[in-house]
Design a binder for these strands. Structure first.
Lengths: 338, 338
DNA sequence: TTGTAAGCGTTATCAG
DNA sequence: CTGATAACGCTTACAA
């Protein structure tokens, strides 16, 4: 029914082998022959059958992007960066959401869906204790991950420890001593970034001999609404913090709302800083530590491609790539009022 | 190297045909045989080779999601909805970004990448005049689209005409007569939604005999920043509007910022309303016409599946599905001050 | 209910 | 540089 390589071969007066070589740009094809074949193929509107090609060659020409969320800002931004590189590399992108967060019903283990289906894996921020992670890492194919740390795998991330230090230090420099923390969730189910950010926060607190009050930590689940609830909890303390470090801008947005709902003004009455530099942050005057999110995706995809094409000769050596962050001061942080 | 259906057949003492039938849940297999085969397959950790299966059966088990953006809120939300259904249906999702907006360099026509690669197409908001659209629609496979209108194709959308009417009417009811419009872009390159929303806006203006001043229309490109610039342009008019309808919440966010930058207060001095009910809208007190974005993706995916599985018997009839919207009043809109 | 065997459309190995 | 031809691993009539 569909037109095959044999039709092209016949029409061009060559063998299927030659057609295959000519069309894929392989060497050892006479230039005239190649042009002829290309012309015939174009005229016949011939398109290679990926299934047949995959079966015969063993390469699938596609890579799986595994993510716990699709629509959250950070993730969609990363995915967008990844896609741009994969498209450029002529690879198909299979998007797989492993978050059971959405609908709660039992998650299907993704491993079987991956086994013989893709040539590479790009893993976005799977928490180390996620039960799916290990089987995925055991899959024998090139992989690179964003926001994780695994020996022997290309890992791309900002230095979360440092970013949190920058944010916290900024608050300390403004004279704040009673500083609250809005984290994502409790330690049992954390992304690597969360753990690192908490460590960074604590390291600065300790360095300046500041009291670490466990009542001054709340969880915001990385959502606006969660950030709002977390801030309200902090405000309900006997002695509320005068400054707060939120692990993400979106949680900080919610926190600012909570602050206002108490008749207080962010910056004026309570300083707040986030991490991300979300597109809204400039408009809401939120101080933050900016990270180049889409760029993380770009780099991870590029390193994945490097692995896939570094066959034999120049062996690709996996590494941990740290991308730089920048402190952006806006009016949500200000010197502490005595 | 990898374990094949023949290994399973041998180990189970049956033919490859039986293994194939048993594993795929086809009828006419003895129950005992089926269980035996399943057990052996599980033990051998056997996974069907998709390439071989596809080649033999002609079905790819994957569908392409074609979108002009990945990381913009509306699109990532839709994609998320689509993914949840496709995953449930056991289908792979190929995400294809056809926006050349990102990097400007010549876009590769997506048609060849689609030809023999997927079983179905889910098209998100391609403008009717997009040169890629027609070749895509000509592809002979099930398709459904979101935010578009094409005869003979399943189309899912809100009633954009009505939504714009609701928003505009809301402003009129508050006594506003000089109403500005923040659209996406000029008529030459519009999404269907834009065209419909402009029509809805104008229909209400006309119904109430309100002046339509072409100087009171500005383009915001559906971004926050664009909305800000557009609003500034409106504010620079000799007689600025007292109320503004923005075609999206994100543009409205930018517009609110612009209003504040002039020392004015949204709602107090200038009313503004958007469309979407973006997660930030509640926090910014933006009035809006809410649409269930992820739900659009869910429905579109479900209808696509319906087409793919309605082979023969109950023929699926393509249709235009309209999803309901709701007016949400917040403090960004208020009665006009005389 | 089960087995046989002919494809499915390429790629890749050898010769030539 | 080019052509036969044997895989690749599964599905699916058709037989049994």
């Amino acid at each position: 029914m569909s037109i095959t390589i044999r039709d092209v071969a016949a029409a061009a007066g060559v063998s299927t082998a030659t057609v295959s070589r000519a069309l894929r740009g392989l060497p050892n094809v006479d230039n005239a022959t190649r042009e002829k074949v290309k012309a015939v193929a174009a005229e016949l509107d011939y398109v290679i059958s990926p299934s047949a090609s995959r079966l015969a060659s063993g390469r699938t020409g596609s890579i799986a992007v595994i993510t716990p969320y699709i629509s959250r800002w950070f993730f969609s931004e990363v995915i967008s960066g990844v896609e741009s590189i994969l498209q450029k590399g002529g690879l198909d992108m299979l998007l797989i959401n492993v978050g059971d967060y959405q609908n709660g019903h039992a998650r299907i283990p993704p491993t079987p869906r991956l086994k013989r289906r893709v040539d590479g894996l790009l893993i976005i921020s799977l928490p180390p204790q996620d039960p799916d992670l290990e089987p995925i890492l055991n899959l024998d194919m090139p992989k690179s991950m964003i926001g994780g740390i695994t020996q022997g795998v290309d890992c791309i991330a900002i230095d979360d420890f440092l970013a949190a230090q920058m944010a916290t230090e900024h608050l300390v420099q403004f004279g704040h001593t009673r500083i609250g923390l809005i984290a994502g969730g409790p330690a049992e189910a954390r992304f690597v970034a969360e753990t690192q950010r908490e460590r960074g926060f604590r390291s600065v607190m300790t360095r300046y001999g500041l009291q670490e009050d466990s009542m001054l930590e709340a969880f915001g689940r990385f959502t606006i609404e969660g950030g709002e609830r977390a801030m309200l909890a902090l405000l309900n303390q006997a002695v509320p913090p005068t400054a707060v470090f939120a692990m993400s801008d979106e949680m900080a947005f919610g926190a600012m709302q909570a602050i206002r709902s108490r008749g207080l003004e962010p910056g004026e009455d309570i300083s707040i800083i986030g991490i991300d530099n979300h597109p809204m942050s400039g408009y809401l005057n939120l101080s933050t530590v900016a990270q180049p999110v889409a760029q993380l995706g770009v780099i991870a995809a590029e390193r994945l491609l490097a692995q896939m094409f570094a066959l034999g000769d120049s062996a690709h050596k996996p590494d941990l790539v740290n991308v730089a962050t920048t402190l952006i001061e806006r009016s949500s942080t200000a010197p502490r009022k005595r």
